[in-house]
Design a protein around this nucleic acid. Structure first.
Lengths: 335, 335
DNA sequence: AGTGCTTGGTAACACGTGTAAACTGGGTTC
DNA sequence: GAACCCAGTTTACACGTGTTACCAAGCACT
C-alpha cells in the first residue's frame, strides 16, 4: 500500500469555501439557494466560480444523512425480468420521477428470501420502494423497511397489504382473458407454458391459475408445460403438444409463445388450424412473427400517475388510489 | 403536518446498544466482527439478539461516509437500451459483484450532456462506474468522477482514454462483419437501418461506419435508412427499399431487422431472394422468425472477469487488461 | 448617546457510523 | 507491594453536509 495515497481525496464544500474565502455555511447557502436575499451578489458569484473551478459535486450520502431522508427511489427488479413492455414503462418512470427531484435506481434482488432482500434495500434508506413486479413482498419485509425509515412502499398485486400502497392488478386475469378467448373458439384441451427462468414463477403461477379457473367452468383440461428459454426446449414441447392432442396453448408470454409457434411450424403443425396459440404482454414481437400472435395487452396507469402517488406517499404519507391494471385481448392470426 | 411525527424514526445502532445494555462501540464491533476475540460470547449473543429483535439494518450512507468509500457499483444504462443480450449479462454481473460484497445499481442517464450525467453519478460516490454502453464518456466527465473520489471507471469502447479502464470492442466491426458477408454474396446496394430511439445512435453510428468502410473497398453503395421502432415505419421502409433497388439491408439489430423482414414479406419482396437481410446481437428472436435471421454475434468476456477487473481497479488502482470483444457471423436463412 | 432594524456572514451542532486510544479490574510476575 | 499484562468495554473523534442560532457593522430614529 506504500504507493496508494489513500482512497482518493474528494473535493468537499470546505475546499470550495477555502477557495472562495468564505465559510462553509455560506457555500451551502449559495449552492442550495434557500435564503438568497441574505447573500451579496458578489460573494455569491465568487462561490459559484470556485465551485465550478474545483468541479465540486455534493456528497449524496452526507446530504441525506444530515437531512434524515434520501432522494433515492428504489426499483427492485432484475433487468432481464423486465420485458420490452416494462422496460419502456420503467424508463418513463425514471424520467418523471427525475423531474420531481428523485434519483431512481434499479437493484436486482438476488436473494429469494423477502426479508433478506428487504434488508439489502433498507441499507440504502430509500425514500420509496416501488416493487412493480409481483415479488414476494411479505409483511415482515415491509416492517424491515419501515424500521429503516422507508414508509413509502408501492407494490403491484391482487390484494391490499398493510403498510403497502397497492397498484391493483391480478396477473391471473391475463390467463383468464386468454382462456375465455380460447374456450369461445371451441378449444377444450389447453396447454400452458411455464417458464423455468428464475424470478418468473411469480408471474407464471397466477397466470396458470387464471386459465385453470376458466377451464373448470367450461369442462376444459389444462396441462402445465415447463419450458426453459430456448429453441430446443420449444422443439421438444412442440412434439409433446401433438402427442398430448392439445388444441390450444397459452404461452405465458409473447416470447415463449413465439418460440413455440416457430417450433410447431417446423414440425408441420398448423397454427391456428390444429393448435391455437395465445401470448401475453403484447410485445412488438407479436406483430413481427407470422402468423401474427394473438396476445393479452396490459393497461398500465401512466408513469405520471405512479410518480404522483409515490411523491404524495413520501411527503404526505398517503395517496389517491390508482386505477387498477386491467387486461384486454389483442386478437390476431394465431388463434 | 400535525399528525406527521417527522420522517419516520429510524432504528439506529444506538437503539441496539441501549436495548443490549452496552455501548454503541460494542455493537459495532459485534456486528462487523473484526476483533471478535475481544468481545465475550455472552454480550456478543445479547447484542445480536437485540439487533435481531429491533430489526436493525445499518445505514449505508453513514457507513460509507465514515469509511470514506462506498460499496456501490454504478451501471449507467437505461433499462430499455439493453437488449436481451446485455440484460442477461448485466444480471450475471450483478450476481458476481454481489458475491464480492458490492451493491450494484442501475441508473438511467437522462441527460445527454456527459458532464451533467457524470455529476449525477458522482453524487452517489460510487466505488466504480461501469459504462458498458458506448455512452458519450468524455475526459471532462471522467475528471468530474475522479474529483468526487471515483477512480475506478470501466468503459466499453474502441480506443483507450486517460483515467478509464477500457474494455476494447469496436462497434464498427459489427457493421464490418455484416458488410463483408453481404459483399461476399455479391450484394452491392446496401441499406442500413438507423434507429431513431434515443440513446441508440451511439451504437448505430459506428455500425454504419463499419459498413461504409467495407463498401468503399468493394465499390458498393450504402444508404442510411432512419427508422422509428414500429410496424408502420417498417412497412414504409419496405416500399422504399424496393423503390431504391437495394439488394441488401443491414438491420442495426435483430429486432429492427426482423421488423423489416416481416414488412418485406408483406409487400411480396423475397428474403433472401431479392433482398438479403442481416441483423446483429444474435438475439433468440433471430431463430424464432422465418426466414431465420443471419446475425452478428457478440463475444463478451465473462462477467467474472469484469468483476475481477473492477475489484482490482478499486483496491489496487490497476487491473489486468481484458480480452477484447470480438464479433462473428451467425449465418442463417435471411442472407 | 443609546436603541432598534437591516444586511451579510459565521460558529456550532446533529445526522449514524467505524475505529484508535484510553480505561477498568483482576490476575501474574519480579 | 509495585509493576505489568490482558480481556472486555467505553470514550472520543472523524466523515461531509444543512441549518439554527448568533454576531458585527452600518444606518436611522428617538
Amino acid at each position: 500500500m506504500a504507493f496508494s495515497k489513500g482512497p482518493a481525496a474528494q473535493t468537499t464544500s470546505a475546499d470550495v469555501a477555502r477557495a472562495a474565502g468564505v465559510s462553509r455555511a455560506t457555500v451551502s447557502f449559495v449552492l442550495n439557494g434557500k435564503p438568497t436575499a441574505r447573500i451579496s451578489q458578489e460573494t455569491r458569484a465568487r462561490v459559484l466560480a470556485a465551485a465550478d473551478e474545483l468541479g465540486y459535486v455534493p456528497h449524496a450520502a452526507a446530504r441525506s444523512l444530515r437531512a434524515g431522508r434520501s432522494d433515492l427511489v428504489l426499483l427492485p427488479a432484475a433487468v432481464s425480468a423486465a420485458g420490452r413492455l416494462f422496460s419502456d414503462w420503467v424508463d418513463e418512470l425514471e424520467t418523471v420521477l427525475g423531474e420531481r427531484g428523485y434519483t431512481v435506481v434499479l437493484h436486482g434482488n438476488r436473494s429469494p428470501d423477502p426479508v433478506t432482500a428487504a434488508r439489502a434495500w433498507a441499507q440504502l434508506r430509500p425514500a420509496a420502494v416501488l416493487a412493480m413486479a409481483p415479488t414476494g413482498l411479505t409483511p415482515e419485509a415491509v416492517q424491515v423497511l419501515a424500521q429503516a425509515g422507508t414508509t413509502a412502499v408501492l407494490a403491484m398485486g391482487p390484494e391490499p397489504m398493510p403498510g403497502v400502497f397497492t397498484l391493483f392488478g391480478d396477473q391471473s386475469e391475463i390467463g383468464q382473458v386468454a382462456a375465455e378467448h380460447l374456450v369461445a373458439r371451441g378449444r377444450r384441451r389447453i396447454g400452458v407454458l411455464m417458464p423455468t427462468e428464475r424470478g418468473l414463477s411469480a408471474f407464471a403461477e397466477p397466470r396458470l391459475a387464471g386459465v385453470q379457473r376458466v377451464a373448470a367452468e367450461h369442462g376444459a383440461t389444462v396441462t402445465p408445460l415447463p419450458m426453459p428459454y430456448g429453441g430446443e426446449a420449444a422443439s421438444a414441447l412442440a412434439v409433446l403438444c401433438r402427442e398430448l392432442g392439445l388444441d390450444a396453448v397459452f404461452g405465458y408470454n409473447d416470447e415463449y409463445a413465439a418460440l413455440l409457434c416457430a417450433a410447431l411450424n417446423d414440425h408441420g403443425v398448423e397454427v391456428p388450424g390444429q393448435i391455437s396459440v395465445v401470448g401475453a404482454d403484447d410485445l412488438l414481437l407479436a406483430q413481427i412473427v407470422r402468423p401474427q400472435l394473438t396476445s393479452v395487452r396490459y393497461r398500465l396507469p401512466g408513469a405520471g400517475l405512479i410518480a404522483e402517488a409515490a411523491d404524495s406517499l413520501i411527503n404526505k404519507g398517503t395517496a389517491q388510489p390508482l386505477p387498477r391494471i386491467w387486461f384486454e385481448l389483442a386478437p390476431r392470426q394465431s388463434s
